[in-house]
Amino acid sequence: MIKAENIVYEYIRRDEEGNVEGIDRVLDGISLDVQTGEFIAVIGHNGSGKSTFARNLNRLLTPTEGSLWIDGLNSDDMENTWKIRQSTGMVFQNPDNQIISSVVEEDVGFGPENMGVPTDDIWKRVEDALNAVDMIKYRSYSPNKLSGGQKQRVAIAGVLAMHPKCIILDEATAMLDPQGRLETLQTVKALNKMEKITIILITQDMEEVIYADKVFVMDHGKITMSGTPREIFTNEEALKECQLDLPQALKLANELRKEGIDITEGLLTAEELVDAICQLY
C-alpha cells in the first residue's frame, strides 16, 4: 500500500526578502513498507516529524528527496495527486480545520459528491458513515453547534464516506472523551478488519497503540524503533528517551516486578496483566 524509500523532507525558512535563513530537516531518511490491510501506529514526541510524514502520504507535501509510492502511485508525479488523495483519506487533530459545510450530512457528503458518486449512493454512504461514528441523530445539525468531539466524529465520517483504501488519523482522538475515543478506535479497527482498509494511526496516547499490528517510533525525523506493540513496549528506557511512555497497565507491571513479584515479561493489555496476577495468587 505504502512504500517509502529513504524519504527526506526539508522546511526552508526564509527571511522577508526571500533569502534562505535556514533549513529544517524534518524527515531524515525514512524507509518503510506498509502492506494493504495493516493497522499501523506511528508514535513520537511533538516535533518528531509524525505529522509531516502523514502529510507526505496524502501528497499535501512531497518528499524533498527519496521516493514514495502510495497504492502503487509515485507521489513525485503531479498527475497522481487526486488519485492519491482519493485512496488515502486524512483525519486531522482539529476538526475545525476539516469541516466546511453548514449541515452535518452535507459535510459528510462533500467528499463522495466531488468524486462523482450518484446521488442515491451518496445518501447511503452518508448514512452508513454517520452510523459508524454514531452521529446519525445530528445529521441535520450545523457543525458549529456541535462539541469538539462530535465534530471530530463528523470529520471521520466525511473521510469514511469516500471509501478510501487507507485512512490516516493524525491524533484524531485527542479531543474525544473516553467513550468517544473507544468508539472511534473500535470503528477504525472494524473498518480495518471488515473492509481491509489500511489504517495509519498517529497518536500520543500509548493506550491506543495496543490496537495496532505494527508500531513505528519516530524521533528527530528518523524511525528509531519498529515492531509489534509487544516488542516496542518491552523497551521502557528507549521509549522514555524518545519522550514517550508505557501504557498504565505495563507501568504497573514494571513496578510490581521491581518489588520482586514474578510477572511474565512481554505483556500488552490490562487483561493480560490481570491474568498474570491471578496466576500468582
Partner: peptide, 13 residues
C-alpha cells in the same frame, strides 16, 4: 480547558 491535549506523554506530564 484541556491544557495537555495533543502533547506527547512527557510534555503532558
Amino acid at each position: 480547558d484541556e491544557p495537555a491535549v495533543g502533547l506527547d506523554p512527557m510534555g503532558k506530564r
